[in-house]
Design a protein around this nucleic acid. Structure first.
Lengths: 248, 248
DNA sequence: TCGCCGCGCTACCATTTGACATAGGGCTGA
DNA sequence: TCAGCCCTATGTCAAATGGTAGCGCGGCGA
């Protein structure tokens, strides 16, 4: 937990309130959350915000930035499990008293909103609608993980990579992080390979092949897709039902 | 949806009440669930209970038997996403209005308890504790999917298979489905391969190799593990924090 | 300014995994 | 009783993917 600037901004100034893809909280909910919120903290690009194996008394909502969640085996093999976008909740995965099962690293500078795990029960009791939303979020995350499972288990290397690119761009667009179909973000090839279950070398080759095929342009600091429809068909991407997401 | 015997047993007679690994509902909760429950239906081994792509107005709790959830790509490739044991909830994955993202097939004769999706909000409003449990379940399922992701993405074929065997036996034991460390269940090699992201042939070869190594004995109608500790270490299995699970 | 280090890239070769073909056993229904 | 089907098992060969090593570039700190 690399905390910085543990300061507390009012919920009325929450950047998520004006995020297009998110359904804003109503007055009552805002008021409740104001009391529920414990603070914020900011992390720099590349820092670990949650550490696998530690016992954390907190749950977080990502306010700004992009992170990824991963798991590591004792011998160092790493699997990136999913990416975290503004509005997503972190730390709810797994049972509530168990040590954290995954780590979390920042791809960009990021801000997190901190909640107490112990007080979660209050939230369900006093704001059933928010409790419902929490379940909704968990269910949605589950669906995303299933997609990735299908990808790694049954898609070829090229398909996986195109699929991932589509997935990332779509989520970026839904949170207003893209610019005209280009998602400006720095993901190393090593991170890509750990997401897709490929070796580093093979990731590199596949990446280049996709550039040549004009399917995906994945460079050091951005992702773009020349023709989304072609890419969709190529990777058997089915879209994500999208619509607005709740948060907090 | 292959319904049979759409009849309704009282919640007081719910078989889950006496399932060792599950935390039983209290009187008040039982009473509420009694009104919430819409009925039961039974399915035979091998039948599809949920169909991918259909829009289902229901959510289910598995009362008896074992199922698996899967996704299929248009070209027929199938990925089994997880296994379902008594007490698990089905149908909450994914957003609530979207078409079902996965199918569900029975490995044994099974009984499902039916709830209305629309009335879920009531549950959160009137029984916050149950709402909380629902989130807990979703979070736990998420954790399981992450495990499988790591498996498929970063473990070798042998490790994956040992891991899966451990996982299944552990869950079976937690719901009283095993017999002295042997889990009597019929899973075809084709189903195993679709779970692990391997080809059928390779699955067969790996299975035999594990038998020779005395790591896992996976036969046509049962799974057993000669030495659990050895298997754990071999597959880098970390156990699942277990403890009692809530349900409904 | 120089050297170090992380990252992308390439080449060569090893290993894992997949595809296709085929055979046998057991179950089921005509 | 026999054909047909599903499942397990085996062999051979091909393709996909991984491992190791080495090069070059650019950022960064001494």
């Amino acid at each position: 937990m690399t905390a910085k600037t543990p300061w507390k901004r009012d919920c009325i100034d929450c950047p998520l309130l004006h995020c297009e893809g998110l359904r804003p909280l109503d007055k009552d909910q805002l008021k409740f959350m104001q009391g529920f919120k414990q603070g914020e903290f900011q992390i720099e690009k590349g820092t670990q915000s949650l550490v696998q194996g530690s016992i954390s008394p907190h749950v977080y909502t990502l306010l700004e930035g992009v992170l990824f969640r991963y798991r590591i085996l004792e011998d160092g093999r790493r699997q990136i499990v999913n990416f975290v976008f503004p509005g997503d909740l972190i730390g709810l995965q797994g049972a509530l008293d168990d040590p954290l099962l995954h780590g979390c690293e920042a791809l960009t500078p990021a801000t997190l909103c901190v909640f107490s795990r112990d007080r979660m029960v209050e939230l369900f009791a006093e704001q059933p609608k928010l409790g419902f939303d929490l379940t909704w979020l968990a269910a949605k995350e589950e669906a995303a993980l299933e997609e990735h499972l299908v990808s790694i288990g049954r898609r070829t290397a090229k398909e996986r990579m195109v699929f991932l690119a589509l997935f990332l761009i779509e989520r970026a667009a839904a949170t207003g992080l893209d610019k005209k179909g280009v998602f400006p973000i720095s993901i190393t090839q090593s991170q890509i390979s750990d997401t897709l279950g490929l070796s580093l070398v093979h990731t590199n080759r596949t990446l280049q092949a996709l550039r040549k095929l004009k399917l995906v342009n994945w460079t050091v600091n951005s992702i773009s897709i020349p023709d989304v429809d072609v890419a969709r068909e190529f990777s058997h991407y089915e879209g994500s039902g999208s619509g607005v997401r709740p948060y907090i």
